[in-house]
């Protein structure tokens, strides 16, 4: 931990930002001073004050409470999306890498097709085909992300297959699936985790983008992208409605991106060597 913090000043900032987001995701709903969903039309579009720290939106809802509760949605979506993407991707990539031949060729061409679409465009097309809600957004983003993990896992499995301990296991008569579960997975897991930490920020960003476009979370959910879309009508008259959700989103994505970069540099021995 100490070495991680010493490595770059930005790592400390990353840990603080991510800790705040995770804290808000777990305790935000309880700590919120007002209900994030309850309307209070008497207090609509109030500027920030002692009662409403970040002001209120056009339904009189407290923006601070909504921003705080929004952290849970973002973190939850990111976790679900990456768990699905890593599971599908690792299985497909590992099977391709381990079996090789036509299985490998077919599976890799399949991933190529998914990778041929720009991410947000594919995610919105899948969301539209499935129907607009947050669950389908998660499915859509999982479909966008699994091919990257399939490629990563395949490369790692192919590299590992050349190593002596795997060849020894094979010489002992171990089956492919046993080699995969017992020996390979634990070796490629750290690499997959680093890649996940690099992707969390982007998944949060894409989730908000889809909600902003009207495809993801639906009203009255306190989702940041949806809040930003609702704030468009009030950019001039009530800029606080767009300022705080945007800031929360930016700082969350920044935190996870810095953490991912930091972890990658920290765990990559080649880079560490260079630094010395």
């Amino acid at each position: 931990m100490r070495r991680f913090l010493r490595q770059s000043r930005l790592n400390g900032l990353a840990l603080v930002l991510v800790a705040v987001v995770l804290f808000a995701a777990v305790f935000g709903e309880w700590l919120a001073p007002h209900s994030p969903r309850k309307q209070n039309l008497a207090d609509r579009l109030q500027p920030p004050s002692a009662t409403y720290w970040f002001g209120t939106d056009d339904f009189g809802r407290d923006i601070f409470s909504r921003v705080l509760s929004g952290a849970r949605i973002s973190v939850q979506v990111a976790l679900v999306v990456l768990t699905i993407a890593v599971s599908i991707g690792t299985v497909i990539g590992a099977v391709a890498g381990l079996l090789g031949g036509w299985v490998d060729a077919v599976l890799m061409r399949l991933t190529d097709v998914f990778l041929a679409f720009p991410a947000l465009i594919l995610a919105s097309a899948i969301s539209v085909a499935l129907g607009n809600n947050l669950t389908n957004t998660m499915l859509a983003l999982s479909m966008v992300y699994w091919p990257w993990y399939a490629r990563l896992a395949r490369g790692q499995v192919m590299a590992l297959a050349q190593r002596e301990f795997i060849q020894a296991a094979r010489a002992l008569g171990m089956s492919n699936s046993r080699i995969l579960w017992r020996h390979m997975l634990r070796n490629i897991l750290p690499i997959l985790l680093v890649q996940m930490s690099l992707d969390v920020g982007y998944v949060v960003l894409y989730t908000s983008a889809l909600s902003f476009l009207g495809l993801g979370a639906q009203r009255p959910e306190p989702e940041w992208g949806l809040m930003l879309n609702d704030s468009r009508k009030f950019v001039q008259t009530a800029p606080w409605t767009m300022l705080y959700p945007g800031l929360a989103l930016t700082l969350t994505v920044l935190g996870f991106n810095l953490l991912g970069d930091g972890l990658r540099d920290y765990l990559d021995p080649q880079l560490r060597h260079q630094r010395v």
Binding site: S208, A209, L228, V253, L254
Partner: peptide
């Protein structure tokens, strides 16, 4: 730069 939401 990569963390800023373009819509924001």
């Amino acid at each position: 730069g990569v963390s800023l939401p373009p819509f924001w």
